Computed example of a mutant assay.
Amino acid sequence: MSVATLPEGDWIRGISIRQPYAACILAGDKTIENRSRPWSWRGWLLHASQQIDRPALRLPLIARTIRSRELPTGAVIGVARLTGCHQDADGSPPCTEWAQPGAWHLEVSDVQALALPIPARGQLGPWRPTEDLVAQVLQQLPHLRP
């Protein structure tokens, strides 16, 4: 399938998420990603992780979630739909156990892991994947659409 057959528009972005957080999202347990700024963009995100946050591996919530999972880095390992972005009100309880106080919470759903990681280099903030990278993702997820 060619990317040219897809509708035009701004429907997919890359986001670099360190491991083990990317694996927690792909497991379906972590439904938010903490960021320092709000995002207005909505649509599919490619999860490309470049680094491992080693101290996080010892946190019980994370250790439980990633048990027996591989932690590939420097690769697109799945996709998720960004459906919203919010910040918890001051003094209110966190929206999930994954929420960091004061952070903006990117809300993700429809998570789909790739069977085979696709090597890719990400960058800070949302980034545009190349047509070739999107085509490689579509080989594994041919039903993925805007």
Rank of each mutant, 00 (worst) to 15 (best):
P72Q: 09
D132F: 04
A23E: 05
E33K: 12
L114S: 02
A27E: 03
H86F: 15
R67C: 11
L6G: 07
H86T: 12
L71H: 01
P55A: 01
T65W: 02
I32S: 02
Q112V: 01
A80G: 09
P38V: 05
I66H: 13
L46I: 07
P146I: 00
P55G: 02
P60N: 02
A135W: 06
L82F: 04
A113S: 14
D29M: 05
L59D: 15
V76H: 08
A115R: 13
T31V: 14
I25F: 00
I32M: 03
R13A: 08
Q136S: 13
P94R: 03
S68A: 13
Q140I: 10
E70L: 11
G125F: 00
P72R: 10
H86D: 08
K30I: 00
H143C: 07
W98P: 09
W41N: 02
R67H: 13
I12R: 02
Q139S: 13
D53T: 01
L57C: 10
P38A: 11
L116Y: 05
P7G: 06
G102Y: 02
W127D: 02
E97R: 15
Q139W: 10
P60G: 07
R145I: 03
W104K: 05
G28R: 10
P101F: 04
Q123W: 11
S68I: 02
I15W: 07
G14Y: 01
S40L: 14
E97H: 13
Q50C: 12
V3T: 13
L57V: 09
W44I: 15
L26Q: 05
A23Y: 01
P38I: 04
A80P: 09
W41L: 04
R121G: 10
Q87V: 05
A56R: 04
R81H: 14
T65Y: 05
H86A: 11
S49C: 14
T65D: 03
P60R: 06
L61G: 06
L144S: 07
S92G: 08
P60K: 03
C95N: 10
S36C: 11
R42I: 02
S36A: 14
L144V: 09
L116C: 12
Q50A: 15
M1L: 14
C85I: 08
I15Y: 05
I15R: 01
K30M: 01
L82R: 06
A27Y: 01
W98V: 00
S109P: 00
I62V: 15
E8G: 08
R13F: 00
A113V: 02
L114F: 06
W44M: 09
T83F: 03
V111C: 04
I12A: 00
T5G: 14
Y21G: 00
I62K: 11
E107H: 09
P7I: 08
E8R: 11
P94M: 06
E131K: 13
W44G: 03
L116F: 11
T83H: 07
I25Y: 01
G102D: 10
E8A: 14
D29Q: 12
L138F: 09
V76L: 09
T73Y: 03
S40H: 14
S49G: 15
A80W: 08
